[in-house]
Write a protein that binds this DNA or RNA. Sequence first.
DNA 1: GCTAATCATTACTTTTTAGTCAAGATTAGC
DNA 2: GCTAATCTTGACTAAAAAGTAATGATTAGC
Lengths: 159, 159
Amino acid sequence: MKISAQEEYGLRCLVQLANLADGETLTLPQIAELEGISAANAGKLMWLLNKAGFVHSTRGTKGGYFLARPADEIYLNEIIKVLDEDVLSSHCDSYTGVMEKCVHTGDCGIRPVIVGLHEIVENALSRITLASLVGNESKVDAMFHQIQGLHRTLEPQRV
Amino acid sequence: MKISAQEEYGLRCLVQLANLADGETLTLPQIAELEGISAANAGKLMWLLNKAGFVHSTRGTKGGYFLARPADEIYLNEIIKVLDEDVLSSHCDSYTGVMEKCVHTGDCGIRPVIVGLHEIVENALSRITLASLVGNESKVDAMFHQIQGLHRTLEPQRV
DNA sequence: GCTAATCATTACTTTTTAGTCAAGATTAGC
DNA sequence: GCTAATCTTGACTAAAAAGTAATGATTAGC
């Protein structure tokens, strides 16, 4: 499994905007500089995020980008779905119930794996706000450690 | 996030072999037919799995592929790591501790997210054997439902 | 209203992944 | 040993993703 470049850098750019004080904005060259990508590339990512309503922009001198909503009201699962097809996708789209691309019958062997992975990723990302990625990392770490702690209670029964 | 074609179909091919009775084998055209891919493509996947020691093969008439180890001793995390870089990878490889590709400093905002997702995926896949993907799906479903049930106990505290 | 700064949009290029092909090597059975 | 069936391997082609470039539209400030 892979996190695409678009997902990773799109999310990073939003984190940079979440870092801003009220009224501040960032231009494309500024975002590009902060994230180590080209301004053209940043422009493409911001265009997607703009279309999806996560950011607003103003043109001209003193223009730039800023968040369209408070960072503590934006969850990572929403962001990822804008930057890619879904939080988790595969050639077989059985987890959506649609099955368009999948040549296999309904209950192929790996279907429950894809469905299950999709659920736990969606669940984890839907608990994390953009705001929690700003400043210290302790809150997100703690959340994942809590999940991992729970998982360890399952350790004995491998299937 | 995406499950690559190589991961998906490599795993599917192994499931087909796990379905065989003792002493039976499958040829490339047979695997290709079962999975709806070309024999050439199946050949490439089986080559990877052969190199990694998951399957054995015999050439010539009556040749074919079969599992090198019992299906209940093969865990999905091992398989995925052979078919792709890791169970979860991204441009930023901070979760491995190596950081070679990543231009960002050690504590960028999204690092804990990548590390956390990597952990929960690795954890889930390390609980599932190839054998459990054969026949009925109930065991894998039950495992994921158990994980999801635990996650729901966390519901109130979003970060 | 002119100019410089900035975003918006589309087309293009490069890189990576996926998939195909063909020639060679091995084996079972005659 | 001959033949047909089968895997092995590397080179090739096609498709998708990532990244670049260029042109146009908008705005602040003079």
